[in-house]
Design a binder for these strands. Sequence first.
DNA 1: ATGGTTTTTACTGCGTC
DNA 2: GACGCGGTAAAAACCAT
Length: 314
Amino acid sequence: MWETKTDDGFFRTNCPVCGNKLIGDSEKGEQVCPSCGFVTTGPVDEGPEWKAIDLEEKSKRVRVGSPTTLTLHDLGLSTDISTEMRDSHGKYLDPAMRATVEKMKKWQSRIRTINSQERGLSIVLSRISEVCNNLSLPRNVAETAALIYRTSVKLKVAKSKSIMGMTAATVYLACRKCGVSRTLKEVARAAGLEKGNVAKYFRLILKDVEKNYIPPPSVEKHISKLVNLAKIDPRVEHLALNVSRQTNDSKISSGKAPAGLAAAYVYMSSVMLGEHLPQREVAEFAEVTEVTVRNRCRELLDNYIIRQKLGWKE
DNA sequence: ATGGTTTTTACTGCGTC
DNA sequence: GACGCGGTAAAAACCAT
């Protein structure tokens, strides 16, 4: 039972079999039902992972950015001035004091209108945090997403745009900027949106906010992610990365979905190392079809002679 | 909108356990 | 027979123009 997400893209908190609350094992990232033994692999510990064993983990560990959090819109401070014109002892205020208090109230209401803009900001920022948690993304991605959103507000790009659309698009862009491999599809799913919808907002932001092009995650990132997700032997990852570096030909990769290529490398490496994962499984985790995996494998074998000490057909 | 490219869907056949 | 694998044709999705 690998699939941990429900149809709407969120992780379960209750057992789908008997309905009891799942107990998390933060070490393995699994959740277990105490009464029926149902096991799922949802993210339990959202904190930073300090065991860096591959590319993705390494990039997650990068600590950059400002020390204060950008994902909170203010410090949570707000005070109201009473409508009753009395002082703290209950005595009525004299006319002069009354006038100054009136002035203060006026100012506060002006400030309040700024707060209503801020309120919109805070909603999106909390959504960003939610979506990042759903995707078990590191803190710096959420911070980056928050920064992107703040600047798009400043540039009036976020004006009258769907909250979730902007959220998903900023998170996706943040992933690309931080070098964390998450597909548009995955982000859209976590936000409960259609892929095409998110793409629209993403293009918008790319056009007006983040003008320099950020390349999508490399095949190597995809390999790392795939190995991580499917809990494959790190040796397979090592070999897959090796082979991919030696064959990263434009002939092989141009126009091809990097996830499919990554799946092919991982599959081939697993065969070479005697692990022999089923195509089906690799394809599933890479979110491509077996056909695509096969096609990439065939192209690789047509163009390269891939050898391994332990013996592999040529 | 369109046309070319890639991916998916659906199906078939083969060998093995 | 079920399973994993390899292939193909056609539909669907994607992308640049």
